[in-house]
Simulated scan of single mutants.
Amino acid sequence: MSEEIRTLAEQIGAALQAQRWQLATAESCTGGLVSAAVTEIAGSSGWFDRGFVTYSNEAKVEMLGVSPLTLHAHGAVSEATVREMLAGALAKSVAHVVLAISGIAGPAGGTAEKPVGTVCFGWQRRGYPAQCLTLLLPGDRAAVRDAAVKQALRGLLDLSRSA
């Protein structure tokens, strides 16, 4: 884990502890890397509730309640899908804040509309509207996944400090 990711995870842990909030994650293209980063921090059991790794569309539907209609209409890599991943993570956890990520890390799988490096992020505090963002991240598979973890953590830190 990079020093930047460790620092972000530590800051998130401190912010969540101060709020007495629990976190849940719903990850696709990062395959649990965000969950791994936050659970690397000693004491994370006091603020990390659970992580959903929903790499396949079937897992998104079964574990998080993402609608097959949403997946058909918008695709797995869409803010619509990420919003439903957030809602599912909130519904199936005790978390106060959740984050969701779905993207195309490559090297294959991209299209003209959604090239490799397209990643959709979402963050939500229970009882508040979701915040979503779509970015085109540069680099190879490892670089895209690393940048996605950093962006997810930065967004989460912003959310946890805004209360």
Rank of each mutant, 00 (worst) to 15 (best):
V61R: 11
T54N: 05
L86A: 13
T81A: 03
R83A: 08
Y55P: 13
H96Y: 04
V61Q: 14
L71N: 13
M63V: 13
R50G: 04
V66A: 05
S78Y: 04
A59Q: 09
V77S: 05
V98D: 09
A73L: 14
T70R: 05
G75M: 06
P68Q: 11
L90S: 10
G75D: 04
M85Y: 06
A91R: 13
F52D: 03
A95F: 00
Y55V: 08
A73E: 14
S93K: 11
T81K: 00
V82H: 02
A89L: 14
K60Q: 07
L69S: 15
P68W: 05
E84C: 07
S78W: 02
V61P: 00
Y55Q: 02
T54R: 00
N57S: 07
K60H: 09
S93D: 05
M63F: 12
V53Q: 03
L69M: 12
R83D: 10
L86G: 09
K60G: 03
G88D: 08
A59C: 12
V97Q: 12
A80V: 01
G88V: 02
E62L: 11
A89D: 13
A89F: 14
V82T: 02
V97N: 05
T54I: 06
A80N: 04
V53K: 07
N57T: 10
A89K: 15
E79Y: 11
N57Q: 06
G65A: 09
G51E: 11
L64F: 10
S93P: 05
A59G: 06
V66Y: 08
E84S: 01
T70Q: 08
G88N: 02
T81W: 00
V82W: 04
H74I: 12
L69R: 13
H72F: 13
R50F: 11
M63I: 11
V61D: 01
A89S: 15
S56A: 15
A91H: 14
G75F: 07
A73H: 14
A87P: 00
S67K: 10
E62T: 07
V98P: 09
L71A: 03
V53L: 04
V77H: 09
V53M: 07
V66H: 11
E84W: 03
